[in-house]
């Protein structure tokens, strides 16, 4: 039987009727057309599907949509809502060449946003630890570490 739920995604409220076994990843991608969040492994190993739920980073492939009823979801599409001004994390990924194939990028960005929300001046070790749940196969790790450090700099309260 379908279940009614309310998801607030990137500040917009959605009333949905969905099967209770559907994951947050499926609902974001298939129902809300928010395909910026990727599905990598489907088993919580790679981090490509990372989103924020009430400010905490989660693997959307392991999260049942019904379990986040009424919560605030943030996805990559919400980082630069106007499409004009990029979020400092996005800007730094572009400037530091922290993208190769781009499939891990959205998950990396969401993990970076989560990290910087808790620690606005992480050192290199803390950045590596904060992103270690996100895998990259092109081995752009170093550029990503540099990008997150640069984003922290940009986001520093002046």
């Amino acid at each position: 039987m379908k279940q009614l739920l309310t998801l607030r995604v990137n500040g917009i409220t959605h009333e949905l009727s969905i099967d209770p076994w559907r994951t947050l990843n499926e609902v974001l991608r298939d129902e809300l057309n928010l395909t910026g969040t990727k599905l990598g492994c489907g088993s919580g190993d790679c981090g490509a599907c990372t989103v924020l739920v009430d400010g905490r980073s989660v693997s959307s492939c392991l999260t049942l949509a019904a379990s986040v009823d009424g919560k605030e979801i943030a996805t990559v599409e919400g980082l630069a809502p106007s499409g004009e001004q990029l979020h400092p994390v996005q800007e730094s990924f572009v400037e530091n060449g922290a993208i190769q194939c781009g499939f891990c990028t959205a998950g990396m960005e969401m993990s970076a946003v989560y990290l910087l929300g808790r620690n606005n001046a992480p050192d290199e070790e803390q950045i590596r630890a904060g992103l270690s749940g996100n895998l990259c196969r092109c081995t752009g790790y170093n550029q990503i570490v540099e990008a997150v450090a640069a984003a922290a700099e940009k986001m520093k309260p002046s």
Binding site: K38, L39, V76, E77, G83, L86, Q90, V94, I99
Partner: peptide
Amino acid sequence: RPSHRQDARAIVTGRAEFIDD
């Protein structure tokens, strides 16, 4: 010289279309 990839913006905003999208 360093300059940004043309698809960089599409990738970082989640708009780049992969096959499953």
